[in-house]
């Protein structure tokens, strides 16, 4: 059985070095603008930094994947075109994209550029994935976080490219790339601006011993004095629907699949993606190290479940949609 590939986040050059040194097989990142889905202030790479990152990673046998996974803006697509051109010029190992117009551009202009389909394209079935394969020659698909293990297996049986699934970190309960909740409330969306529930619209209010988290004037959650807090992502708050208050969409929680690696391998998955380009070096170091150990163990036929609740939102972990009970 082949080993799962470990794909790790790098929000900054320092995080990239740590990811590579901690055992990442591949590192993914974005440019410092709206062309990627973690367009957060102070984060990401300049073109020069990407060149250095490629050098650092390649010298140590790790791959570099560039995410250009937002949707180009009508009337001003230049930043996206530039990002694709720079990726091709610097020879990244693959570019991760969702926008069909950009995929068409990349295929036509840079036929040697390896294309991965971003989770933001929300290709959730074999017919959709095969369409991208036939039209654009994509070589890998990052599967949406709404699929169960049996569904992933069925997809793998019916496609000829490799699949990458999310393994750790933030959980989108919605189909990615098809969610406008953030822009409805804040005006900024993952698809157009590369952000969800952006910090520019977040305020924390300490009221007595309670912590209130607020997004664009809406209370997303209130945490008691000893309660683990979460970031005010709007689908992970407490809301009232029909009189009852609770986590209607999703709890503050993080995905952690270290306990089900044998099942993921069995379902035909090739690569594991760690979420969290916006998280710190410390997060990258610990998560990558742990996954390196868990993946190596799984390759030996062992199961190594590693608790990382301390790094998780709300201090709790889930296996998400991979387990049908999540639905």
């Amino acid at each position: 059985m082949t080993k799962l590939e470990l794909v790790c986040p790098a929000g900054t050059p320092a995080a990239l070095r740590i990811a590579v040194d901690s055992g990442a097989d591949a590192v993914y990142m974005g440019f410092r603008d709206e062309t990627n889905a973690r367009n957060f202030p102070g984060l990401n790479f300049s073109v020069e930094e990407l060149a250095e990152a490629l050098d650092y990673a390649h010298t140590r046998g790790a791959k570099v994947l560039l995410a250009v996974n937002t949707y180009a803006k009508a009337g001003n697509g230049d930043p996206w075109i530039r990002a694709v051109d720079n990726a091709a010029r610097l020879k990244v190992d693959a570019i991760i994209m969702a926008d069909i117009g950009l995929l068409a551009y990349a295929k036509e202009t840079h036929p040697d550029l390896r294309l991965h389909l971003s989770v933001q394209a929300s290709a959730s079935n074999p017919a959709a994935i095969n369409h991208y394969v036939q039209e654009f020659g994509i070589r890998r698909v990052v599967l949406p976080r709404v699929l169960t293990l049996p569904e992933i297996r069925r997809i793998n049986e019916r496609i000829d490219i490799k699949t990458e699934v999310f393994a750790f970190g933030g959980m989108c309960p919605m189909a990615e790339g098809r969610c406008s909740l953030s822009s409805y409330i804040t005006g900024k969306s993952p698809n157009m601006n590369g952000v969800c529930s952006p910090a520019s619209h977040v305020t924390y209010v300490q009221s007595g011993a309670d912590l209130k988290t607020n997004l664009a004037g809406f209370t997303i959650n209130t945490f008691g004095p000893n309660e683990q807090a979460g970031y005010p992502t709007l689908c992970k708050g407490r809301f009232a629907a029909g009189g009852e208050v609770g986590y209607l969409f999703e709890e503050p929680t993080s995905l952690n699949v270290t306990g089900i690696l044998p099942e993921l391998m069995d379902a035909g998955v090739s690569a594991l993606k760690i979420e969290g380009r916006q998280r710190s070096k410390a997060y990258v170091r610990e998560v990558v190290r742990n996954f390196r150990a868990a993946i190596d163990a799984a390759a030996r036929g062992e199961r190594l479940e590693i608790n990382m609740d301390g790094l998780s939102e709300g201090g709790q972990n889930t296996t998400g949609a991979y387990d049908k009970k999540w639905m």
């Binding site: 320092a14 924390y204 300490q206 912590l211 945490f223 004095p225 000893n226 309660e227 683990q228 807090a229 979460g230 970031y231 503050p252 998280r279 710190s280 070096k281 410390a282 997060y283 610990e286 301390g310 790094l311 998780s312 939102e313 709300g314 201090g315």
Partner: peptide, 15 residues
Amino acid sequence: GRIDGDALFFSRSLS
């Protein structure tokens, strides 16, 4: 960068 700021925040160590 020795410890994760988000984790500190989640655990309420930072305000």
